[in-house]
Design a protein around this nucleic acid. Structure first.
Lengths: 212, 212
DNA sequence: ATTTTGTTTAGTATAAATTCTAAATATTGT
DNA sequence: ACAATATTTAGAATTTATACTAAACAAAAT
């Protein structure tokens, strides 16, 4: 089965790694690589691609907007998002935007080849976790994304907390009492089952600049 | 020139990627891979290796202590540290411990092959940045690594802070008074020119769990 | 319609963290 | 060797954050 695969990642180590893993498993495939968004658009306009393995943090990239743009060039293309962010907190928006699967960069060789195989055969690859997140989102049930459990106000305060604001700053910015901020904080920490801001930061898994 | 290379990384994508990049450039090399510390020790005991490309966050690993242990098995082995942490903040301790080079995982193909080539030919590979850090360290000039400015005790407290410990926990663990902890914290924050723990975390660029 | 549950708000009392000051000890400079 | 500087420690006073309680209101459930 001859397939055309495009790997989009700005880190050679990653694109080379995926390339060799797929090359070993799927002998007949043609594997191409691009390392930024413009190159990717150009390639898609000149060559029919079956599957694109897409890093979501490439130079020039626009997150979920990329999905629509890529599919408008080749409507039948399958898109497998390939990212270091954990799927619980980051997969859903891309799936909702039209991506056909989400795969973590830390996956094993078996998981990677399985994802590619599945997506080419069935048209999509969703782990049970992501599937559950999607169901949870649509049914408004308990979501795997911790932030979804919070109310608007609680999200607002969470945002300020991870920016490093103290209770006083938050109280001033939102024009509420200090104790009110503390109460919110308490509710947020209880919901997320955490004890302090350090845990909040690692839960939200904010990329600290220099990661994949 | 026939050389034996061992790539140590617990992520297939990374080890495969480095493997193919080196395989393309250096045709005659034998390239092996291991994915945890025990495997690595076993391999070194049974096979002569010229260069080990070492991820510092492998399962069972012990940071700088690994360097001594690996070199005690094969004293002539060259060790190239391969990490996602930026070299300014993380390279020096490994070089001081005896590693022969430090390479960022986000490097280009050219940088990777250059590092391997250089380390095999000259015995070490140090970027100008790392060299400067080492010089700064030895001359007690302003160091690029913020942690180097701190005393041992201050580093100890910093470590506990980014683990999420509060002042009381720290005071108990170190058997000092609460106010003493506060004083240390104040000194640390002043030295690092930061205002709170959120900034401390982003400064130290600690990986939030699921990163390479 | 009305109970139930969750959100947003705050006051009082308490706990935790910081500031300021300062002493003993270590380290470095000349 | 002695001065200058940095580290580690802590008490007293103060500031900041939390726990507990609770009211007003909104949304959801039965």
């Amino acid at each position: 089965m001859q397939k055309e695969i495009l790997i989009v990642d700005d880190h050679v180590v990653v694109s080379s790694g995926v390339s060799i893993i797929l090359g070993q498993k799927f002998k007949g495939f043609n594997i191409y690589t691009t390392e930024n968004y413009n190159q990717t658009l150009k390639t898609l306009k000149s060559k029919k691609i079956d599957l694109i393995i897409l890093d979501i943090n490439i130079p020039g990239g626009k997150n979920t907007d990329m999905i629509h743009e890529l599919k408008s060039i080749q409507p039948d293309i399958k898109i497998l998002i390939f990212s270091v962010y954990n799927e619980e907190t980051h997969a859903c928006p891309y799936i909702v935007a039209g991506a056909n699967g989400y795969l973590n960069k830390l996956s094993t060789k078996k998981e990677i080849t399985k994802a590619v195989d599945t997506i080419l055969k069935t048209g999509s690859y969703l782990t049970p976790t992501i599937l559950q997140s999607l169901i949870d989102n649509s049914t408004n049930k308990e979501s795997a994304n911790p932030l979804d459990k919070l109310s608007m106000r609680q999200k607002e305060i969470t945002e300020l907390l991870i920016q490093g604001d103290g209770n006083i700053e938050i109280a001033n910015k939102l024009s509420i009492q200090l104790t009110t901020v503390s109460t919110h904080k308490n509710k947020i920490f209880n919901k997320l089952k955490i004890k302090n801001i350090v845990e909040l930061i690692s839960l939200l898994n904010k990329p600290p600049g220099l990661n994949f």
